[in-house]
Design a protein around this nucleic acid. Structure first.
Lengths: 136, 136
DNA sequence: GTGAAGCTTCCCTTGATGGTAAGGTCAACT
DNA sequence: AGTTGACCTTACCATCAAGGGAAGCTTCAC
């Protein structure tokens, strides 16, 4: 007889919020196995495990759609690690792309900021930089 | 007599979309100076300039609220470069924070991915990593 | 048996952007 | 003069992950 827990306890154990657990369910990630007579969501230990996976995957920035795929693979004994790695690689590329964009911003912004005295003077290289119009 | 242009031309000249120019107006960033008899937005060259500033600032990732402040300072002769630099620094901190988060994700993900053979085998260190539950 | 805490669903907000729809306007070509 | 096509208007909906809050039901402890 499996011990079943409510959404609040599942939230505590996983570090997710009850709100988000419901949200993930609405997004199709993970239904609770059972409802109590009163309609309360009840989770068994395997589902708690899966909620933990969702938590970890979100921590790594995987979008919900990809977590969906990861959960499917996790529960599919016929999976190949190739499929899993492919998803991870794709996400890794996204992350690196975002890092590049942000680093680009940082460098430009840092240059402008470094040239700005930051004193009482109205003259400001940062504003000058923003005004340099690339108007067509 | 100032030459006035429509939103479509302003969009072309700035590289913004007409959609976003309207959105920025609705957000309180920049009203057009005039409307034609038919209700078309009309922009003068100074406003085109300001739209260019918005474009550049968005390119650097400034959120709308901060662009609002920057536009205010730009048009305020009593500004100090200290005020401008403060906004820029704040945004720079945000950017660096995001970069750090992403780099953290990248490293964790890369480690998992590097340990994964990516072949026909069902055994997968990436899934294992996601399953390592920090359940309380 | 009452009150507090926990659960339910439903709707709204964020932030920047895009899509689409329904309708008015303008200019150019026929 | 009329039609066509490009451009403009507003208004609503969607995205993505997360949270806020309301209104109402349930459970538990005292």
């Amino acid at each position: 007889m499996e011990k079943l827990i409510t959404i609040g306890e599942a939230a505590q154990r996983t570090g997710l919020s009850a709100k988000m657990i419901r949200h993930y369910e609405a997004s199709g990630l993970l239904k609770c196995s059972k409802r109590s007579e009163a309609g309360y969501r009840l989770y068994d230990s395997q589902q708690l495990q899966l909620l933990g996976v969702i938590k970890q995957a979100r921590k790594l920035g995987f979008p919900i759609a990809q977590i969906q795929s990861l959960l499917d693979l996790l529960q599919n004994p016929d999976r190949t690690s190739r499929e899993v790695k492919s998803i991870a690689q794709h996400h890794l590329n996204e992350i690196e792309h975002k890092i590049n964009e942000l680093q680009q911003m940082r460098e430009t912004l840092k240059q402008l900021s470094d040239n700005c005295s930051g004193d009482e003077n109205a003259n400001c290289p940062i504003l000058d930089g923003l005004c340099q119009n690339s108007l067509k």
